[in-house]
């Protein structure tokens, strides 16, 4: 019997599974992905806003956008505002040097004039430098209250695309595909077992996959229902 944390240390031989457009499971969001991609191809467009509930794939889309720019030899930066909020408003300075700036979790921007002014200036500087600014938010800016009217009116006027939450069949397909891109075989019945018990949030689901990938490597075991049950303690 193997314990969840027993076994040999895994070597770094996992296949890369970074967020990219190719592994974004579109489901009902095909048109949104197309719009974001065509926006990325425009020279110096107006900033764009991606809205959607937690788990709809906003972070994936933003990171995929970064990777697509990097693959073209262009500089890109991803920043979650919830992470930045632990720093100071000046943490948003200097980003106009990037060809693409992706800001995630707009709703986490602190509601202080200092932070909102910092975002307004970043917005203006990216626009002035001809860069791309892609912002993601759980709620539309109109539904949030803002300390700075200048920022509010800019955000409310942005072109918005709305990501829908994946349906169960989308989540199943996505889980299987992401497992496959890691070189893991995830039988349908195991995927169904995981989906019935795992949190519905896509990020957490992928975290579970990561955990199973590590465990499978350590224990040199295929993914079966008993193995998954044991590793995840379900």
């Amino acid at each position: 019997m193997v314990g969840p944390h027993d076994g040999q240390l895994s070597l770094r031989i996992k296949l890369r599974d970074e967020a990219r457009f190719a592994n974004f499971h579109e489901g009902r969001n095909g048109a949104v992905v197309t719009r974001v991609q065509s926006w990325l191809a425009e020279p110096g467009p107006e900033p764009m806003l991606v809205c959607g509930d937690t788990g709809a794939g906003k972070s994936h889309l933003l990171n995929a956008a970064c990777l697509s720019f990097e693959e073209q030899g262009r500089d890109a930066l991803y920043l979650s505002l919830s992470e930045a909020a632990a720093l100071a408003p000046e943490a948003l300075e200097g980003f106009e040097r990037f060809d693409l700036v992706c800001l995630d979790e707009l709703e986490a921007l602190p509601a202080t004039p200092e932070w909102q002014e910092a975002l307004l200036h970043l917005y203006n500087r990216v626009l002035d430098s001809g860069g791309h600014l892609l912002i993601a938010s759980r709620t539309p800016p109109g539904a949030q209250s803002w300390a700075l009217a200048d920022l509010a009116s800019r955000l409310r006027a942005l072109p918005v695309v709305q990501l829908s939450l994946p349906r169960d069949e989308d989540r199943h397909a996505m889980l299987t595909a992401r497992a496959s891109s890691r070189g893991l075989i995830l039988p349908d019945e195991v995927a169904a077992y995981i989906l019935k018990r795992a949190p519905r949030d896509t990020g957490e689901l992928l975290g579970i996959l990561e955990q199973l990938d590590d465990a499978s490597l350590q224990h040199q075991r295929r993914l079966t229902v008993p193995f998954v049950k044991h590793i995840l303690g379900w």
Partner: peptide, 19 residues
């Protein structure tokens, strides 16, 4: 090598943007 080690979000926030 670091790209294999860190999740996309961390990598795209703190490492890849460094010149």
């Amino acid at each position: 090598l670091l790209q294999d080690e860190f999740p996309s979000q961390q990598f795209n926030t703190w490492l890849r943007p460094l010149q």
